[in-house]
Design a protein around this nucleic acid. Sequence first.
DNA 1: TATCATCTTGAGACGGCTTATCAATTTCAA
DNA 2: TTGAAATTGATAAGCCGTCTCAAGATGATA
Lengths: 143, 143
Amino acid sequence: MSKDLKEMEVLRQHLAKHQLKLTRQRELILTAFLRQEHVTAEVMYHQLAKKDPHLGLATIYRTLNLFCEAGIAQARHFGSQAQYDNISHKGHHDHLICTGCGTIVEFENCEIERLQEEVATKNGFVIQTHRLELYGLCSRCRH
Amino acid sequence: MSKDLKEMEVLRQHLAKHQLKLTRQRELILTAFLRQEHVTAEVMYHQLAKKDPHLGLATIYRTLNLFCEAGIAQARHFGSQAQYDNISHKGHHDHLICTGCGTIVEFENCEIERLQEEVATKNGFVIQTHRLELYGLCSRCRH
DNA sequence: TATCATCTTGAGACGGCTTATCAATTTCAA
DNA sequence: TTGAAATTGATAAGCCGTCTCAAGATGATA
């Protein structure tokens, strides 16, 4: 559980900095969030209904957005619902998305990231974050 | 206007292939669409209201989606509304987006594209399309 | 070029996702 | 422990985009 503590600390500092409070719900949602790669608010809502049947969907949305502001999560729009990705836990990662079955494969590529920096610098930008999604067919869906 | 003819031809072929029809509205929207880098359906709606006050918003959405299917446009979700980018006119391009002022700078980088292919192949994918967005602050917004 | 099956349009209703509202509750600094 | 301030839950509201359907446009065919 030492890994979780790191995120909790990041959250704690963000809350302190903005005069926000650490609540039971926020802890609960963070813990569950860190256990997965990417989730939608609705999925978390159902997952957590077992632990706390009164936890509201609005709270999940609010909290996931809070995580984004704290740099723990990143929102992504694939399909109709927003997906929230864990970016702090295992570092930033990009996605390969199968347009056939919806499978999502994560990857990291330092070389690409380096080139991105290069492009940004050339245009006078300082990158804060990025998003790279490759859409295509996985080997199974091609047959 | 010879440039526009190329897109019109692409559209014409797509329509023929799918037993769809070339309408006044589709021509109007295509012409306007090709004049800009990226637009939202709503923006086009207001732009075109001058030329055709009865053109409906639903038609704009339908037509822009049609362009996506024809390979002329690509939809992107930045903020709450979908942006439609012109990909056929000047080839695929990626985006540098300033989180301060919203400025969007286009770029192309073959080396990055090549590495993307490499990643996809390694994972058994065949890429159909991709999306790369770099978020950060432009030089003006940093001061 | 007249015909007509088929596709498209426009207007508004509808639906899904997300945020806003607000009274009741919880947090936490003093 | 107290109380100002933030948060929550329930639900209403909002927004974006799609669907519906009658009226109109298109284009293959004769």
